[in-house]
Simulated assay, not measured.
Amino acid sequence: MAETTTVQSLDRAFDLLELLCKSRNGLTIGAMSAHTGLHKSTVHRLLASMCARGYVVRDGETSVYHAGMRICELSGCIMDNIDVIERARAPMERLSRETGETVHLVMQDERDIVYIHKVESVSGGIRMFSRIGMRRPLYCTGVGKAILATWPEDEARAAWRASDIEACTEHTITTEDGFLRELTRVRRLGYALDNEENELGVRCIAAAVLDFRGRASYALSISAPLSRMTDERIAELRIPLLAVRDEIAAALGG
């Protein structure tokens, strides 16, 4: 009986905590009681325990309760301990096997992306010049544009203006208006393309790995020689790419 009571208490405490985390302006005991169907005395008792540990704070003037910063501290610890590559490795290998193409995982660092994992194509043809640890500008890569499209436009524009814009190939977008139009297109489609903008003879489709805020610091891409990456092939690859992207994002809490 005691074990059942303990589990029930935990469930009720988590219900209250999740409710507070989703409330922008906080809630009173009465409001939480109405939301959960719990008696006010039960709500008060559970909140007192959570307040004592910093998971909940109470405004002394209004008696409104808010989620405490202890939640942020723990979420930061969780994110610091997540091994992104380990979470992404198996899905990326499966995606490469299914598509027969090279798959990359990158992370954003300042105005660049850095390749942090790569699964090489088994289909042959030209070999991608990318390598683990290589840095490329955000603005001229499919993965970079996918990441920037998740940012507010003023931040994306600031990243563009802070970059040393140059044409990596004859296809690189080198005007701010063209760049912003491209990000609008990426937001509409849900994925980005690199049409030989970073490397001649190579085309890729990329998708940002969203975090819990709907923003991205990581992105996934499928790259292949231009001869294999027709518009029809891009349309085919979009579905497995986005599915694996979502799988990785879920594993990372996105």
Rank of each mutant, 00 (worst) to 15 (best):
Thr4Asn: 12
Val7Arg: 14
Ser9Thr: 14
Leu10Thr: 06
Asp11Glu: 12
Leu16Met: 03
Leu17Ile: 12
Leu19Asp: 10
Gly26Lys: 08
Thr28Pro: 09
Ala31Arg: 10
Ala31Ser: 08
Ser33Gln: 06
Ser33Lys: 02
Ala34Thr: 13
Ala34Phe: 04
His39Pro: 11
Thr42Pro: 01
Thr42Cys: 02
Val43Tyr: 06
His44Arg: 15
Ser49Gly: 06
Cys51Gln: 14
Arg53Asn: 12
Tyr55Asp: 03
Arg58Val: 08
Gly60Ser: 14
Glu61His: 10
Thr62Ala: 13
Ser63Pro: 00
Tyr65Thr: 04
His66Tyr: 13
His66Ile: 00
Ala67Ile: 06
Gly68His: 09
Met69His: 12
Glu73Gln: 05
Asp80Leu: 14
Arg87Glu: 12
Glu98Gly: 11
Glu98Trp: 01
Thr99Met: 02
Val103Ile: 09
Leu105Tyr: 08
Arg111Val: 10
Val114Ser: 01
Ile116Ser: 07
Glu120Lys: 07
Val122Trp: 02
Val122Ala: 11
Met128Ser: 15
Phe129Met: 13
Arg131Cys: 08
Met134Gln: 04
Arg135Lys: 14
Pro137Glu: 05
Leu138Met: 10
Leu138Thr: 05
Leu138Gly: 03
Ala146Ile: 09
Ile147Trp: 06
Ile147Gln: 04
Ala149Leu: 08
Pro152Phe: 04
Arg157Ile: 12
Ala159Tyr: 15
Trp160Ala: 00
Arg161Gly: 00
Ser163Trp: 11
Asp164Asn: 11
Glu166Leu: 07
Glu166Phe: 14
Cys168Arg: 13
Cys168Asn: 06
Glu170Ser: 05
Thr172Trp: 10
Ile173Cys: 04
Thr174His: 02
Asp177Glu: 14
Gly178Met: 08
Glu182Tyr: 06
Glu182Leu: 02
Leu183Tyr: 02
Leu183Ile: 06
Leu183Pro: 03
Thr184Ile: 08
Arg185Ile: 04
Arg187Thr: 10
Asp194Ala: 13
Glu197His: 05
Glu199Pro: 00
Arg203His: 11
Arg203Val: 14
Ala208Cys: 06
Ala216Pro: 05
Tyr218Met: 09
Ala219Ile: 07
Ser221Val: 00
Leu226Trp: 02
Ser227Phe: 14
Ser227Lys: 09
Met229Gln: 03
Arg238Asn: 03
Ala243Ile: 02
Arg245Gly: 07
Ala251Ile: 01
Ala251Ser: 09
